[in-house]
Design a protein around this nucleic acid. Structure first.
Lengths: 140, 140
DNA sequence: GTAAATGCAAAGAATTTGCTAGCCC
DNA sequence: GGGCTAGCAAATTCTTTGCATTTAC
């Protein structure tokens, strides 16, 4: 877990967690990952899930998405990409917009420090929820 | 607290909370706000702080910044702006980059829904922490 | 006067941590 | 074999909530 000294060992548990994360695009919570991993490894503990998620984030294999005061969510896609969050249903979608790496340099210049990455999220109403709202409006 | 029906009353507590938030640019946590408000109003309760922060966020007077698995932070600046987060010391700085409103439209087109706003955060090392790291490197 | 907001305290929920045993390198 | 990890459970920590009382309008 400490990456500066010592080394990180490969374990079945961490492998399973990463596999689960990479096989979905639903941006799951720690608990969802726990339930999934438990299917093939009934004895895993939630503590292990949390510890490994933290390690994976530190290793850069996984992105952490804290959204509001709810749960923390995780994203197994390592490449840079942005997200859209539907405020009605809570769904998180990946976006195709290309990463604006030049912004990092601009910000680095402004603050006089280093910038390693950025995170960009859009908030609104997804197409499905929009349809529901419009249907409800027509009825009224 | 419910903004759709009923009405929101003006209270000393909420006024104090908003004043505290607007008089700092440190993006404080709920607990910091609590400590500050308590200086002029020793009987406020943490519950009131949380309830009012939520109300202020709903009213759009305050921004909520959830960062990592730590505390939720609040920003009393209502106008759109972006943030830089130092991963060494945790400090959050406001940035001067202009808001890219056209991105919202682009994303709305991509997902077929509505986009109300976005949030953009940069992560890295601030100038002060960078200086410390470099000083340490020189010594070694 | 009445509904909304506060204070207080207790409950809740997510995440972390201490410890012993086990597994990876 | 040594030390990182897992498992288990207790502990922490941040946040929310119930209820009686107070307060704003």
């Amino acid at each position: 877990m400490v990456t500066t000294k010592g080394f990180v060992r490969k374990t079945k548990q961490r492998g399973a967690i990463l596999r689960v994360l990479q096989s979905t695009d639903t941006h799951p919570t720690a608990d969802w990952v726990y339930q999934e991993v438990r299917k093939e490894m009934p004895n895993v503990s939630l503590g292990t899930i949390y510890r490994n998620l933290k390690t994976l984030v530190e290793m850069g294999e996984v992105q952490e998405l804290s959204y509001g005061s709810g749960y923390t969510r995780y994203d197994g896609k390592a490449h840079d990409h942005y997200h859209f969050v539907c405020e009605q249903c809570g769904r998180i979608e990946d976006l195709e917009i290309e990463c604006m790496a030049e912004l990092d340099r601009e910000v680095a210049r402004e603050i006089g420090g280093k910038v390693f990455r950025h995170r960009l999220e859009f908030y609104g109403t997804c197409s499905e929820c929009l349809a529901e709202v419009q249907a409800a409006a027509r009825e009224a």
